[in-house]
Design a protein around this nucleic acid. Structure first.
Lengths: 329, 329
DNA sequence: ATGAAAGCGCTAACAG
DNA sequence: CTGTTAGCGCTTTCAT
């Protein structure tokens, strides 16, 4: 920066201001600085800026997996809405494991993000402590935790599956199964399974047709295997709700391979409104949790919290939408 | 750090060393430091560490979209292999636009990454200049550029589609179409289309059955629409190669909706070996470009380049594998 | 195995 | 609109 300043014939301070688009620099000077920098191959060093100004421009984000269209949409929504605020995302993945999440959160906090967005409302005690001590806005997403750490932008996974149960019951189904992850490892999946059980009991129906599909991510392969198990062990099942559209599509494919008619012989519903649900034949009934909206709203909360540090914990509840399609008749 | 040092009764220097697992600190002191830090809620500040040591621990990565299983796999491969080296990924998305890429690269370089991995071999002139001046290892992936910027870990998109053409021709098809993105915006798609044309001409076949599906990302919806156009305009087509498995699945679904038998009436092949290709019925013939392997190898190149700064440009050519499945008979 | 002094490249704060 | 001074919180370097 010294070199650029010398080349233009101003002080380093002016160069600094020119790069930050500070209003109090004449357009002519700014342009001269930019050109000199470009010619010299100088690239602004934000590591130094960060230390002195105590502003990193980072928002830390943790998601279970980068390879998931729903979480990717949330990140996209966040990213789009944070960009105009001059904030960049520092992304980390937990591999669906709150122990990994704890380690990740510690790593991310070392980078001094200005806010942190985490997926889910279940964390280790140490992770909770780290987040509480961080003195930055914390936003939990994709869940409505009972004991929130700070702000929340999410929805009730249980209620969302309840809507699907209601839909199937309204279409005359009584023997309904649920395909999801193992109870102990799939946190959002567990909430959905509990929602399934609660809704079934509300209708006075048997809620014991539960197929565990393993550790998350529960994908197409797991869905297909689980459907095979379901067809073999409980062949009189009339409808099945899968923990996600990916497993639902796997289940659908398994039916097609076996010549089981969907929805004639068995109805299938998913979760997430992935693109595949609207494309496949028959199209899958699903629930749209508005992942992009979650990201956008989380960014809004961040903006508000950074603007007024005393902001009380915000709680934005998204209402997922049931999308009834051919797979449930 | 001063406060922690005071609490433990050592100098800040010792605390610093304790946090970096420096060998020259006694285990007892290290443990005492850790406990004091934990109790005080102190979290190491890597922004200051970064400035003084000139090591950020970042590897910058640009991908077209976060919502794409192939690129996500490359990032996962990178991430896994960089973690043991103490390197973290700083991820940015270009939205399939080299103008956005230029801006993104500039933003990323300001953070002083220790290496940068970009997707594709086509960049703006200014982006090329920025990368050349950055004086860090540059790795281009998912392509084998003619004029590489530095290291390359990729494959020939053209040759990969050539394999698919050969496969279809071997199965007796002569009237073969290609569904891909617009020529001017879909760079990897363009390479694949050119590979299609070259391979068709090599076989002495007509290479003009080209359906443009719009700007990337070319997803299921676009594939379905393109298939509709193909069936209407060139109904005697025997086989179609799609720029990705997602568009191929969209095309397959469109056929199922119209009662067109696949592969009986028309064979369909995709690209990318996405999970859906192996799950759907009929399963899709595709090409596996080993995206995880690309990431892993890129991380290896980074390790080598950081270890020996004079390392000549490496060029790792991945050989994509054709996976023949039911969709092409 | 531990400590003291100096400084990484910017920018806050203040001055003009 | 521009400049001066001091210092962000660590780590390099050298010393013991």
């Amino acid at each position: 920066m010294q070199d650029v300043a010398r080349a233009v014939g101003v002080s380093p301070m002016t160069v600094s201001r020119a790069f930050r688009n500070d209003a109090s620099v004449s357009d002519k000077t700014r342009e001269a600085v930019r050109q000199a920098a470009e010619a010299m191959g100088y690239v602004f060093d934000s590591t130094a800026s960060t230390l002195r100004s105590q502003r990193t421009g980072f928002v830390a984000v943790t998601i279970p997996s980068i390879n998931n269209a729903n979480f990717a949409e949330t990140v996209r929504g966040l990213s789009e809405a944070l960009k105009p605020q001059g904030l960049q995302i520092l992304l980390g993945t937990t591999d669906y494991d709150i122990q990994n999440e704890e380690e990740l959160i510690e790593q991310l906090l070392r980078r001094r993000p200005e806010a942190i967005v985490v997926t889910g409302g279940k964390h280790t005690e140490r992770a909770r402590r780290l987040l509480e001590n961080a003195a930055i806005p914390v936003i939990e997403t994709w869940d409505l935790p009972e004991r929130p750490l700070g702000h929340v932008v999410g929805f009730s996974n249980a209620a969302a599956v309840g809507m699907t149960v209601d839909h199937l019951v309204a279409h005359g189904a009584t023997r309904i199964a649920f395909i999801g992850g193992d109870a102990d490892r799939d946190t959002r999946g567990t909430d959905r399974r509990l929602g399934f059980i609660a809704a079934m009991q509300r209708h006075g129906l048997d809620a014991t047709r539960l197929i565990a599909a393993g550790a998350p991510p529960i994908s197409m392969r797991e869905g297909a295997r689980a459907m095979a198990r379901l067809l073999e062990t409980l062949p009189d099942t009339q409808a099945v709700i899968c923990v996600s559209d990916l497993s639902a599509f796997g289940a659908l494919s398994e039916c097609q391979r076996r010549g089981v008619a969907v929805p004639g012989q068995i109805a299938i519903a998913g979760f997430g409104d992935y693109e595949i649900a609207g494309t496949c034949v028959p199209a899958l009934t699903t629930v749209n949790p508005f992942p992009h909206e979650i990201g956008r709203k989380a960014a809004e909360v961040i903006a508000a919290a950074l603007a007024s540090p005393g902001l009380p914990p915000q709680r934005a509840a998204i209402s997922p939408g049931l999308i009834a399609r051919d797979s449930t008749g």
